[in-house]
């Protein structure tokens, strides 16, 4: 590549990246606090991860290896096109292997395997404000964050229990970061919430349309909100993964035919593949062979 091309490494110009990095540094300094930034127009529509892409573009370097997942999978449209985008504009190495990646951009999941020191997890965030659904005024929500007035968050959970008998919020489940800011962890399943707690990796959140960046630095306390008599619980699955037989992982439902046939498989495709390569077999791995015979 020519010098001129590397000057605008990773699509964004240097001034923009510097602006975003400043926002990221501030976000890391104040865990859970939403830092406004001058979100740019990106060559993809809002909702496709423009916030995450800008954060990734600001932190990625030529030595990095990028992995992009969407709902846990490396091979969905969104993941494929964002991966292709960075291959083109930054010429970085890409991978689907979680352990090889230094930067992982994600939509709606945290990988099953524990993230390690030196890795950066970049979340795509549609609505960064956890208080938004109950308090529409931005001036008011900012004040509530500033003054730590978080009673309203529990009103939402109260409503859940009153209506359903238990806390029925299953994704974008609000957390308190380092005992101070209440944060929306983006629409990850609450199954993944405990993975944010004391993680060794740096977690960055980018909301392109809403123009906010926030962060969880490594080794930060992240606690899911709950009531004393209705404590936080993650989803439990009755069966292991149908393909790799893994227990205690987040499963997706896959429809097999139009006669009600279905299976539950790992949402984290990389994790599932690795297990199968290592010889683990789930019940449908066998069933499929039988069907083929």
């Amino acid at each position: 590549m020519s010098d001129l091309a590397t000057y605008n490494f990773a699509y964004l110009d240097e001034q923009t990246k510097r602006m975003i990095r400043r926002a990221i540094l501030k976000a890391i300094a104040i865990p859970g606090y939403q830092v406004p930034f001058a979100s740019r127009e990106m060559p993809m529509p809002y909702g496709w991860g423009t916030g995450g892409v800008q954060v990734t573009a600001a932190v990625i370097g030529p030595e990095d290896t990028l992995k992009v997942i969407d709902q846990g999978a490396d091979d969905t449209t969104n993941a494929v096109s964002i991966r292709a985008f960075f291959q083109k504009v930054a010429n970085v190495a890409v991978t689907t292997k979680m352990r090889e990646a230094t930067v992982i951009q994600t939509r709606h999941r945290i990988p099953e395997e524990t993230l390690t020191e030196g890795q950066v997890l970049v979340y795509q965030v549609p609505i960064p404000e956890p208080l938004r659904f109950l308090e529409p005024r931005e001036t008011e929500t900012r004040k509530m964050h500033a003054l730590e007035e978080y009673g309203l968050m529990h009103v939402k959970l109260y409503e859940d229990i009153a209506r359903n008998g238990h806390i029925a919020t299953t994704y974008a489940y609000p957390v308190k970061v380092e005992g101070r800011y209440v944060m929306d962890p983006s629409p990850i399943p609450k199954f993944d919430n405990p993975k944010m707690h004391m993680s060794e990796a740096l977690q960055l959140f980018g909301a392109g349309r809403e123009k906010r960046i926030y962060a969880i630095p490594p080794h930060t306390k992240v606690v899911s909100l709950d009531f004393e008599d209705h404590p936080f619980e993650v989803q439990k699955f009755a069966k292991p993964c149908a393909l790799c037989g893994a227990h205690g992982v987040y499963l997706d439902e896959v429809i097999l035919d139009d006669k009600g046939g279905r299976m539950f498989v790992c949402s984290d495709t990389d994790f599932c593949e690795e297990r199968r390569e290592a010889g683990h077999v789930g019940e449908l791995g066998v069933a499929n062979k039988e069907a083929a015979e």
């Binding site: 007035e149 009673g151 309203l152 009103v155 009531f227 209705h230």
Partner: peptide, 13 residues
């Protein structure tokens, strides 16, 4: 209940 939750009550019942 909102005011109660605002002053730190965390017991749904």
């Amino acid at each position: 209940g909102e005011r109660l939750m605002a002053v730190g009550e965390r017991h749904y019942g």
